[in-house]
């Protein structure tokens, strides 16, 4: 699968969430998938939602949105990551996955594009669980 990880960034600042995103990209690649990041520069809030909605993503099987403004990106198969704020402050990777157009019911081998997906949610309590949630 070709998995695109989208997140907003503050140019020239390296944050904890950037580190997690890099780590996830490497982990997904290690699992045999194609994976790369889409880094959306934070711009004026009023413009940001329009900017994000106007982006057209092609050549991507699954879009993983790692933060809120990116949740609005358009794609038929999205995984939205919602972090638990309280856990985030303590450095814990914990939260909820929302599947949009994706069904977490079967494993998709790296060389196969999923064909039948639906919606749902799942909890994750650490990085490995998050990875599993993305790759199911």
């Amino acid at each position: 699968m070709r998995i695109l990880l989208a997140k907003t960034i503050e140019p020239f600042l390296s944050t904890e969430s950037d580190r997690i995103a890099c780590d996830l990209i490497q982990a997904i690649q290690s699992a045999g998938h194609f994976c790369e990041g889409l880094r959306i520069p934070l711009i004026e809030a009023i413009a940001l939602s329009g900017f994000i909605r106007a982006l057209e993503l092609e050549n991507t099987d699954l879009l993983v949105c790692l933060d809120q403004p990116c949740h609005n990106l358009r794609h038929p198969a999205k995984v939205l990551v919602q972090w638990d704020d309280a856990a985030w402050k303590t450095g814990t990777i914990q939260g909820t996955i929302h599947y949009v157009g994706v069904v977490p019911t079967q494993s998709h081998p790296p060389d196969k594009t999923p064909t039948s997906w639906e919606s749902g949610t799942r909890r994750f309590g650490n990085r490995d669980e998050l990875l599993q949630c993305i790759l199911v």
Partner: peptide
Amino acid sequence: EVLYIPQHDRSDLLIGQYANNRLID
């Protein structure tokens, strides 16, 4: 800092994408 902005060459999207780049500050 490297910024790659997704681009699609479909004709009906081009002007919108152009405008999108103008928003980046």
